[in-house]
């Protein structure tokens, strides 16, 4: 077995034991995101008060990357303002394109473990599913 697997413990743990994967009561924003080509499917729900994400959760099915990415994203954005969350989404999406600085990468905390996806074109859609869904939702906030 090789040790340099992309599927490290942080990733598999967020996939198998997600913190934010449940049905959120009282959410005021909810949106489904789908990757038709691979069948990844998440429903993201946020509770936003006075421009601040006070709680969030997701439900769905899909590969470990899509599910863990959504979980790590929620870790990061709960408690943040809409603008802060949008900024993080922008950094994450640029990380996947391979164009961020080390300082920016640090801001992504655990989510930064997905940076290698920039070399895995087939998995880009999985990694960005949650983030794209959130971006789209926040436009409505």
């Amino acid at each position: 077995m090789q040790n340099n697997t992309f599927y490290n413990e942080v990733l598999t743990d967020h996939n198998l034991h997600p913190v934010h994967k449940y049905h959120l009561e009282g959410a005021n924003f909810s949106l489904e995101g789908v990757n038709p080509s691979c069948g990844d499917d998440i429903v993201l729900s946020l509770k936003v008060e006075d421009g601040k994400i006070v709680d969030g959760a997701y439900e769905g099915d899909g590969c470990a990357i899509s599910q863990a990415s959504a979980d790590m994203m929620l870790d990061l954005v709960i408690g943040k303002t809409k603008e802060e969350a949008e900024r993080l989404a922008d950094i994450f999406l640029r990380m996947i394109k391979g164009t961020i600085t080390e300082e920016e990468k640090e801001e992504l905390e655990e989510a930064s473990i997905l940076s290698d996806v920039s070399h895995m074109p087939a998995r880009v859609k999985c990694a960005v599913l949650g983030w794209h869904t959130m971006q789209e939702m926040l436009e409505e906030v």
Binding site: C63, M120, A122
Partner: peptide
């Protein structure tokens, strides 16, 4: 318990 895309990715790593 494992999504086919993850299965194929791990096979690829091997």
């Amino acid at each position: 318990g494992v999504h086919p895309h993850d299965i194929a990715a791990i096979f690829d790593e091997h």
